[in-house]
Simulated scan of single mutants.
Amino acid sequence: MITKVGSDLVVVSNPLILHHERLGAQLDASKTPLSYSDPIEEYWAVKKAAGIADISNAGRLRITGKDRVSFLNGLLTSDVAQLREDGGQHSALLNPKARILADLYLYGQPDGILVDTGDSPASKVKDALDRFVITEDVQIRDATRDLVQITIQGPSSGQAIGEALGVELEGLKPLGHKILGPSTIVSRDRSGQGGYDIILPNEEAEAVWNGFLLKTGDMGVRPIGSKAMEMLRLEAGYPRYGIDIDDNTIVLEAGFRDAISFTKGCYMGQEVVARATHIGRVNKQLVRLEIEARDPPSARSKLKSNDVEAGFITSAAFSPGLGKVACLAYANRDFAKEGARLAVEQEDGPISAVVTKVL
């Protein structure tokens, strides 16, 4: 099967596609579920209980070898030396100009490091890392085709996993994880409502997916598609690679302070990050906006303040909970402040917007 990862089409093997079709899911061209019913109903299912989504279009790498930690620590923004076997880190791979080549999540495991490359294609991340392997004992394998990734989001997500899998997750810190046989359960909020990812072998995916549907339906858990996930993502203010950030984005423009170690020393792009941090500013900053409208503006719509250009929209969706549009945007330095009031340029005239969060 061919599916889309970021802007690239890659071949993957996802055993859940037939299940999505049987459930009547609306699928996009890459066979990713857009919705199973009304996306707004799916949104509220996550808000009130939990929703389960197939996010197998995310990329996955397994990195092994005795030099894996020192190798990654010299390339990535996070302090990989501090990664525990039951812990996780947000990290990034930059080019020498500190522009983001990949947005990564690392999970320490006894025999290696599992990397969620998200919308950054795993094959491209692998190729970029492989170029730096010279004499190091490091093996980088693209595991995207071997693994399925599902996410359970919502206030009842932990209880749902307990019912379906018999696993207790209380006390698991953000990005912390538990290994259950060949599967990894990660504390990963993608919705602003709390949640978990489950990364598991293809051969176990159908049983786990069906187990959730059979055992947690009475709790209000239901399958959800990418349309509902997009509403929740933007409401929470989480950027996506290839949409809100890309290889032209300087890492500090996107926030990413949870992904950067400012004390560990050298990594690719570190000099630019240090210089920008010392100066104390970048020219633009990713922000979350709320717009007084029901119809989301298109990407690249201009932001203005009293006829002065103030930035541009990167992604937007109507939020049923807010009753208005939530979006991410780049605001020029003078306007990247919580409470800043801006206008979104539209054909029918400007629409009022306010900055609610600086990332």
Rank of each mutant, 00 (worst) to 15 (best):
D8W: 14
V12R: 12
I17D: 01
T32E: 03
A45R: 10
G59T: 11
R60F: 15
I63V: 10
R68I: 06
L75F: 09
A81I: 06
Q82R: 15
E85S: 08
D86V: 12
G87P: 00
G87D: 04
S91N: 04
A92S: 11
V115K: 02
D116N: 13
K126F: 09
L129A: 08
R131Y: 15
I134M: 14
T135M: 13
T135Q: 14
D142N: 12
D146K: 13
I152N: 03
Q153S: 07
L165Y: 07
V167A: 09
L172G: 03
I179L: 14
P182R: 15
D189Q: 08
D197T: 01
I198G: 04
E203K: 13
K215T: 11
L232Q: 01
R233D: 05
L234N: 04
G242M: 02
I245G: 00
D246F: 06
D246N: 14
N248Y: 14
R257E: 15
D258S: 12
I260A: 00
C266D: 05
G280W: 15
V287L: 02
E290R: 11
E290T: 13
E292Y: 13
P296W: 10
K304R: 15
E309C: 02
A310D: 04
C327F: 08
G339F: 10
A340P: 00
V355R: 01
V358R: 01
